[in-house]
Design a binder for these strands. Structure first.
Lengths: 131, 131, 131, 131
DNA sequence: GTGGTCTAGACCACA
DNA sequence: GTGGTCTAGACCACA
């Protein structure tokens, strides 16, 4: 089942938030491949946002091969594997950007490794205590 | 000595690029605390951009306590320690955002750790070969 | 409802006047939290000033956490409590500056207290007669 | 004796800082009426600032009747009583501005009185403990 | 010379 | 429609 939530206060564009939601639901296996997605109008009405915004998200997802639409019937989720791969490639790219920024800041690879380790450990501890 | 370079084609706003340059030069210790910065007009002329854009960058840096400017006298670099701390705190925050995104994507902490390790190793190899 | 008035002849920068107006309207409870603010263009048109000037005011208010703006959607008032606190802390700070100046001028704490009392009484009398 | 100190980091214009110093030294009785003031060049050299800045301060003080200059001989301090009065009138004016701001912020006269009392008490306690 | 304010106006992404 | 970025250029106080 698709249930989207968006954060109206966030600076992240609504259409990006929507795309991310689809991606994540699929990657987590919470929705199955070929499952029908809610219509643009449906989503827009549910979230109280502009249909154009939803359409933009769907369009981009389709262009990226993550969903497909059948004229007259609606939009359907693509293979969920592709979502997982797509998300992972996004994550990789973002981490690479982060590494480059660390290096530009004058940190040595070793210092960066240490920083990563430290932040991860702190985060992981917090995460596990949440559960 | 200050020497700024910007990428006019980048999607990163010019004023953000400028801020980053100041931050990095200071964090790397390439400029000293209380050193006078080139004037708004000077930087604008050197880079062929509008003085307002430079002023915006300087203004934000000042607000963040990283430089200080005295009307009629010029702008001066703040304590370089604060720059290093500021940059590191930015890096930490960005990495935390990345970790959260990984978790939202359905990756387990362990999978995230693996991904980090993998991306880092690849990057590090490439970095060392560059030199 | 927001209705701004500015004094073009005042030495106080327009953007500072605007910031103060928002702050005061909010602190007085004349506008509610999360209420949408008039757009940058709207305010600029109403007051006959440049949109950039309005944007500068909004920008600073946002930085100070008193309003928030979402690109493409508009600007919204933050929690009105924070405005009241912010204004009061500003008033406190200014009064402290005044006290320090009085002391630097060679007045004893007692002389300062007397001066405050005197000025306040005169002012208060005038105020009440206005109504 | 005149010994000026200025804060190069302050946003208060240097010439205003200078004027304030003269005023305060005189009001406190640390310099006597008709005492000769150090020359513009002297002050500028001592403080490492531009002579124009010192001249501007002296000019304004003279215009306001607080010092007088004898062509060919130099500048001299005016009656110290006038300095005390001038300073006090400045303080009054500033406090009135503060009161007006408090009122504009929506505080009742009573609330303002309370705020004054509170800030004063805190300040006074701190002051007396300093000694 | 320096930074600070403001105008007029263009172009962008987003809703 | 909205805010965000940027340019070109004027005028100010201050040093």
């Amino acid at each position: 089942m698709f249930s989207f939530t968006i954060d109206q206060h966030s600076r992240v564009p609504l259409f990006v938030q929507l795309k991310e939601q689809v991606l994540i639901l699929a990657a987590r296996g919470l929705v199955a491949a070929d499952e029908q997605m809610p219509s643009v109008r449906q989503v827009a009405a549910d979230l109280g946002i502009n249909p154009n915004t939803v359409q933009k998200a769907y369009h981009e997802l389709e262009r990226e091969g993550l969903i497909y639409s059948v004229p007259g019937r609606g939009s359907f989720l693509g293979a969920t594997d592709s979502h997982r791969q797509y998300l992972e490639s996004l994550l990789r790219k973002k981490l690479l950007t982060w590494l480059a920024e660390g290096a530009r800041s004058g940190l040595s690879p070793e210092a960066i490794r240490k920083l990563m380790h430290e932040v991860y450990t702190d985060w992981q501890k917090k995460e596990s205590s949440h559960e």
